[in-house]
Amino acid sequence: MSGLKLSHVVSGAIAVLLGYTSSVAIIFQAIDVLGLTQAEANSWMLVLGLGMGLSTLVLSLRFRMPILTAWSTPGAALLVLSLDGVSLPEATGAFLVCGALLTLTGVTGWFEKVAHLIPDAIGSAMLAGILFRFGLGVFSSMEDNLPLVATMCATYLAGRRWFARFTIPAVLLVGILFCLATGAFDTGATFTFTLAKPVLTLPEFTLTAAIGIALPLYIVTMSSQNMPGVVTLKAAGYRPPVSAAITVTGLTTLILAPFGGYAFNLAAITAAICAGPEADEDPATRWKAGVVTGVVYCIVGLLGAAVISLFLIAPQALVVTIAGLALLNTISGALSTALADPGQREAAVVTFMTTVSGITFLNIGAPVWALVLGGLTAFVLRPRRVAG
Results as ranks from 00 to 15, higher is better:
Ile364His: 07
Ala245Ile: 02
Leu339Met: 11
Glu281Lys: 15
Gly388Ile: 13
Pro258Asp: 01
Ala347His: 12
Leu79Asp: 01
Val24Gln: 04
Leu146Ser: 12
Leu371Met: 10
Ile364Asn: 07
Ser23Arg: 07
Ile118Lys: 07
Ile122Asp: 05
Gly365Trp: 01
Thr232Ile: 13
Gly93Thr: 03
Leu215Val: 15
Leu96Cys: 05
Leu327Gln: 02
Ala77Asp: 02
Val380Thr: 11
Ala150Lys: 00
Thr252Lys: 04
Gly374Pro: 10
Arg384Gly: 14
Glu40Thr: 08
Val380Pro: 04
Leu48Val: 15
Leu88Gln: 09
Ala214Tyr: 02
Thr355Arg: 03
Gly183Gln: 08
Met152Gly: 09
Ala305Gln: 10
Ser336Val: 00
Ala317Ser: 05
Val231Glu: 08
Gly261Ser: 04
Leu81Thr: 15
Val138Cys: 06
Leu59His: 01
Leu57Trp: 06
Gly261His: 03
Ile168Val: 10
Leu18Arg: 02
Gly261Tyr: 00
Ser357Phe: 13
Val248Ala: 14
Ala214His: 01
Leu157Gln: 07
Pro119Gln: 08
Pro241Asp: 06
Thr252Asp: 06
Glu278Trp: 08
Cys153Met: 14
Glu90His: 10
Thr190Glu: 13
Glu281Gly: 15
Gly237Leu: 07
Gly237Val: 07
Leu327Lys: 04
Gly93Phe: 00
Ala181Asp: 11
Ile269Lys: 04
Gly35Glu: 15
Ile67Asp: 05
Ala13Val: 15
Met353Gln: 10
Val319Tyr: 06
Thr221Pro: 01
Leu376Glu: 12
Glu112Leu: 02
Tyr218His: 02
Val80Glu: 01
Ser72Ala: 11
Ser141Cys: 08
Phe379Lys: 11
Ser357Pro: 08
Pro203Asp: 00
Thr221Asn: 09
Thr330Ser: 11
Ala275Met: 10
Cys98Tyr: 09
Leu131Ile: 15
Thr221Glu: 02
Pro198Gln: 03
Tyr297Ala: 02
Leu376Ala: 15
Gly109Glu: 09
Ala267Tyr: 02
Pro169Asp: 10
Thr108Phe: 09
